[in-house]
Design a protein around this nucleic acid. Structure first.
Length: 242
DNA sequence: GTCCAGGGCCTAC
DNA sequence: GTAGGCCATGGA
């Protein structure tokens, strides 16, 4: 009988709490989402939809330079002007409209102050945000977490990919299902969710990319995908040696 | 030149 | 209800 070549990992797949601790230990406290005001965080959440942060930074700098980084300023700015200022963020006509609709919402419901949204129950506020055209689940949760300090999980593309590979949740888990699963397993702690999302993005950018760098990854021995990937490479190199 | 990035809306089936 | 197309820029 041939001995199995499958590398026997003595440890089980990593769980959520432990993965968070490992990420925190590896990357340190991320102190994420650079923004001077809660409104700027919300604007960034809208502008970054399907867009790299580099392109968003230019748009944010443009808005701040023209003193447009408030709900009242954006609401009274002509659409074509707003479009030109945020052009670098891509989909600029859609996003200009979304920014204006969000600004109008903040003005009408919260006197133009995002800070006042913090006093509202998370479920109520989430429903209100989702009713705004252009604010979907991920953007709403980013606003709830980063601008309103609510303990919610932002189940973005990075987290779906990472948790799918780790074996924490199937890769085709939908947004709501993944969000519920994570929130059901972790304590309701806003700063923790803030760090977790930031760490997932960092991990997703550096190692767990679309083409993952499993050979350099510090959790590959506790990851379903990583174990498969490394075993395949091991088998290939063994075959080459023969 | 092609692909992708801290999504969401709309249309067709 | 859901898969596919579209928005659109800038960097790799």
């Amino acid at each position: 009988m041939m001995p199995s070549r499958k590398a026997a990992s003595s440890l089980p797949l990593i769980d959520l709490e432990e993965f968070y601790a490992v990420l925190l230990g590896h990357y340190g406290d991320p102190m994420w989402w650079p923004a001077d005001t809660p409104f700027e965080m919300c604007a960034g959440a809208i502008l970054t939809q399907n867009t790299s942060w580099k392109n968003v930074e230019r748009a944010i700098a443009g808005l701040k330079k023209l003193n447009l980084m408030t709900a009242s300023a954006i609401a009274r700015t002509a659409p074509d002007v707003l479009e030109q200022v945020i052009k670098s963020s891509g989909s600029y006509r859609q996003k200009a409209r979304r920014l204006r609709l969000f600004a109008q919402f903040v003005l009408e419901s919260y006197g133009g102050r995002v800070e006042q949204m913090r006093g509202v129950h998370v479920d109520t506020l989430r429903r209100e945000l989702l009713s705004i055209h252009g604010i979907g689940p991920e953007t709403a949760d980013s606003i709830l977490l980063y601008a309103c300090d609510k303990p919610v999980f932002v189940a973005d593309a990075y987290s779906r990919r990472i948790f799918g590979r780790l074996g924490v949740a199937p890769g085709d888990t939908g947004y709501g299902a993944l969000k519920s699963m994570v929130e059901g397993r972790l304590r309701a702690d806003a700063p923790m969710y803030n760090r977790l999302h930031a760490l997932l993005v960092e991990f997703g950018k550096q190692l767990c990319r679309q083409e993952p760098l499993c050979s350099r990854c510090f959790v590959s021995s506790r990851c379903r995908y990583g174990l498969n990937s490394l075993n395949v490479k091991k088998r290939v190199s063994e075959d080459e040696d023969e």
